[in-house]
Computed example of a mutant assay.
Amino acid sequence: MNLRNSTILITGCSSGIGYETALYLQNKGYQVFATVRKEKDVKRLQSLGLTTFLLDVTKKETIENTLNQILLQTNGTLDVVFNNAGFGQPGAVEDLSTQALKEQFETNVFGLHEVTLQVLKIMKKQGFGTIIQHGSVLGIISLKLRGAYNASKYAIEGLTDTLRLELRDTNINVTVLNTGPITSNFRKNAIAKTIKNIDIKNSRFSKNYAKNINADKSTVPFNLEAIEVSKIVEKIITSKTVKPRYYITKATYILGYLKRVLSTKKLDFILNKI
C-alpha cells in the first residue's frame, strides 16, 4: 500500500492539520477525500480542487452517506483513514458541566469510534488498510485546566491500543499521532469553548483562565507548522511497517520521556509548572 494512488479519507478538514494534510497529500498524487461538517466549507474546499464531502462525526448518517459516495469513486475500496476531527474543551474538572464533558467525548471519542467502525467494515472486506487516530501529547500526560480534553485523548489511546491488539491477525494497521503544539485554529476555538461553557468569573481559577485567554500564541514553545503532521501521515502511508504511535513536536518527546522515567509525584511537580 505504498502506491501514490492510495485513497485516503480525512475528517476535520475545514482548517489546520486536516486542511493542510488534504492539500499536501493531493499535491503528492494521492486520491484524497476531505470531509468537513459545514456545507459552506464543502464548497470552499471544492473551489480549491479538493474532493470534499459533508461528514459530521457526531452524525452516523453523514458518515455512512459519505463512505458510500467515496466507495462509488474507488470501486469499493479505501486504503487509509485519518481520524483528525476534534476540538478542545478547556476548564478545570470542577468547572466542567457533565454536558460539556459529553460534548467533548461525542466528537473526540464517540465520533472517532463511529468512523473507525464504519471503515473497518470496508478494510476487513478488502483485506487491508491503515487507520490513523489523531491523539495528543495530552493522551500521554495531563495538564491542569484541560480535564475534558485530557480524558478524551487518553480514551483514544486506550481504544487504539486495544484495536491494534485485536487486529494482529489482519493486514489492517492502526496507529496514533501524539501531536504537541501545532499551528491551527485549535487555540482560538478552545478559547471560544472556555467562554461559552465555563463560569470564569465565579471560578477559583479565574485568573488562570484570563491568562490563557490573553496569552500570546507565538510564545508557545516547540510549536510546529501543520505541514509537519502532513509529512508524518505520508510517512505512515508509505511505510511497510507502521509503528504503534508517532510523536510529533519536541514537546511530545520530552514529556513522553519524563512520563517513562519519573515517578508520578516528580512528574506532577513539573507538569504543574506548565
Rank of each mutant, 00 (worst) to 15 (best):
G49C: 12
S206L: 03
L101R: 02
V242E: 01
V93L: 09
G135P: 00
F105W: 10
N272S: 13
K266G: 07
E64P: 00
N202C: 11
Q126I: 09
G256P: 07
N68K: 05
E228D: 05
L67A: 06
L9M: 04
T107F: 12
K40G: 09
D216R: 06
Y30C: 08
A148I: 11
N202W: 14
H134P: 10
R146N: 14
N189T: 10
E157Q: 05
F222E: 14
A251P: 03
D161Q: 04
C13D: 10
S203I: 12
S97G: 11
F128T: 08
S152Y: 13
L112F: 02
N171D: 09
T160G: 00
K40V: 15
G49H: 09
N27E: 14
L255I: 09
N189M: 05
V115S: 06
I172F: 02
I191M: 01
L9G: 04
Y19F: 15
K28V: 15
V261D: 08
T21N: 02
N68H: 02
A85S: 07
K266D: 14
N84R: 06
V174T: 13
Y154H: 14
D56K: 08
K153A: 08
G256T: 13
K43E: 14
Y253R: 11
N223F: 15
A92K: 01
L23V: 15
E94G: 05
E234F: 06
T249Y: 07
G135L: 04
D199G: 02
L262V: 15
T130K: 00
R187N: 11
V32G: 05
S206M: 07
K235W: 06
Y154R: 08
S239G: 04
F82Q: 00
K240C: 06
V42C: 13
S203F: 10
S203M: 07
L48Y: 15
V81Q: 00
